[in-house]
Design a protein around this nucleic acid. Sequence first.
RNA 1: GGGCCCGUAGCUCAGUUGGAUAGAGCGUCUGGCUUCGAACCAGCAGGCCGGGGGUUCGAGUCCCUCCGGGCCCGCCA
Length: 648
Amino acid sequence: MFHILEKRLIEAVGRFLRESRQVEIPVVLEQPRQAAFGEIALPVAFGLAKQLRQPPRAIAEALAKEFPAVEGIEKVEIAGGGYLNVRFDRGYYAAALLAGLTDATNEAAGKVIVEHTNINPNKAAHIGHLRNAVLGDTFVRMLRANGRKVEVQNYIDNTGVQVADVVVGFHYLEKKTPAEVRNLAAQPKFDYYCWDLYARTSAYYGSNPEAVEWRRNTLHVIEAGEGELAELGHIVADAIVERHLDTMLRLGIEYDVLPRESEILHLRFWATAFEQLKERKAIYFENEGKNSGCWVMAGSHFREAGDEGEAKVIVRSNGTVTYVGKDIAYQLWKFGLLGKDFHYKPLRTYQSGHVAWVATDEPCDAPAPPFGQGGEVYNVIDSRQSYLQDVVVAGLRALGYAAQAEKSIHFSYEMVALSPRTCAELGIPLSEEDRKKSYVEVSGRKGLGVKADDLIDKLIEKARAEVDSRHPDAPEAERAVVARQIAVGALRYFLLKFTRNTVIAFDIQEALSFEGETGPYVQYAAVRARNIFRKLAERGEAAPDFAAVLDRDALRRQLAAEEFWQLLLAASKAGPALESALKAGEPSHVGRYAFTLAQSFNSFYHDYPVLTESNREKKTFLLWMTDYFRRRLEETLAILGIEVPEYM
RNA sequence: GGGCCCGUAGCUCAGUUGGAUAGAGCGUCUGGCUUCGAACCAGCAGGCCGGGGGUUCGAGUCCCUCCGGGCCCGCCA
């Protein structure tokens, strides 16, 4: 509704200026500095000051006198150096909200592809991976809430060097057969086992340089896809992918399709992309210099104009393709530009019946929905890979796909590091140098980091203690559910409260907090709103028919109280909040909105006892406000992927 | 050497395309539970927005420069 009035205002003011002043300027709306100034501020007078050669204040006064009538707007006032502050007709506005009038969502055409998570399937997921997945998943929920069609992809690099390292560990260090590893892989914490093995193998390379040859050979065999080492690679990667899906499901994160590198190789996606790249002269064969014998992309494609820079090798002199090359092929496929497709088989069915599919190289009986063919592609990848993402986009552009290059968005974010305090707490040894830093980078290679499942377990444990102390009589199973919901709320909110380009110095104390700006704080507000209606029912009272009691005049009477009006206004801005968060590409903005909404409600809850209110109109109004807040809180939390517990 | 990011209250962070008196949370201190359950609320204190220059009627926000910190720049992935 807020948006509707904004649009009306822009339209009316634009026409007014055109007709009365013969000026054509874009009408900009602002949020007044203070809520008491009104709902919308128009700074038009400042823009006109130059053109009309008059002081802004005088222009504002003149404009205010002739200001056109706009439905739903009560009046305009002059303020400050020349602002026109607009006040809504409160009764009109609230009546529209009560009638269920909402801002229309964008029905933009085309599918959006969001790729996130993308964890190397060779070890347990850690806190950094969680940031990626939660950011990606929340962005997906934002897009869907806005009416967009979204496909969630989780790319699996199952033939890469990281998997090879773990295979080396099993085969050369532990001398295990595929059958033995298969047994191990069926154990619950196989990903933890590999976490340690990966670190051990990496360390082994350091002290035994000749072992690096094992790795090279293993990688080669895994890519070819045949032999015992390749079998080991599959066992490891497939099992770990399942563990990752389990971990993410604990946070409510699901996927539509898992494209895999093994299929990119076997289905010769790269060969097809290579032909295109050669044909359209996007890459060239280098005959001299250090890159002699390689196919390279000229630096001018992916750097600032004028900066020739270094060329990027796409195909090595031994004929093998680099990681970026495969990524270009994958990106082409996402847009439906490759002229090839994977085959698919169902990987798992979620509780809702939703199926996650995985790429295969041979057809399967189950009919898969169409994947790929996106109109817009978001790659959720940390900022350290921005150079490579630039190369991928440059590849598209060099192939003549300028439109798709524009629609290829690197949804980048900064890494999660560990606070020194948390390192100490976890018993991670720090060098003299690390101790001085404000944070320490995690390293899978060194086995240095906080495992996702450990963190979730810890959060559940703490939430459970809180729930037990408050609701000792509630059934055990119920308390377990509530504790899990609170833990997930705390974790997801924690990862979302920072803007994307802030490095998170992960501090376990801070993440375990349930007070202040946290997920549980917001959940608590929603629970309180629900409790009021539960108590009402327990008293044998039915929820009133709001529309019957609250006509426009009644609403106007109640909303004459400034506090009520400000609360309602804030709650009514969920739509615009989502829209601006999408525009900015910032899930954290939705989190922040949820928090301020919860703050508003908590103060309302504290100041106005609803159930004991004796005046019928006021009580109905308070109940309506409660209900309105409850719905906005629930909607916003759903976008954040946070559930509302039965009680807290 | 080149590129990207960051520097705002004791700590952790917000701050829309430049706008009115720079905001939260935590922490400190002070008050508030007679169940719509305090995982809450109210209040106090705390700021040369890293330094300097510029553009502008107006700069935390844009430009230049310097200082401090992080990340990237491979025929690894």
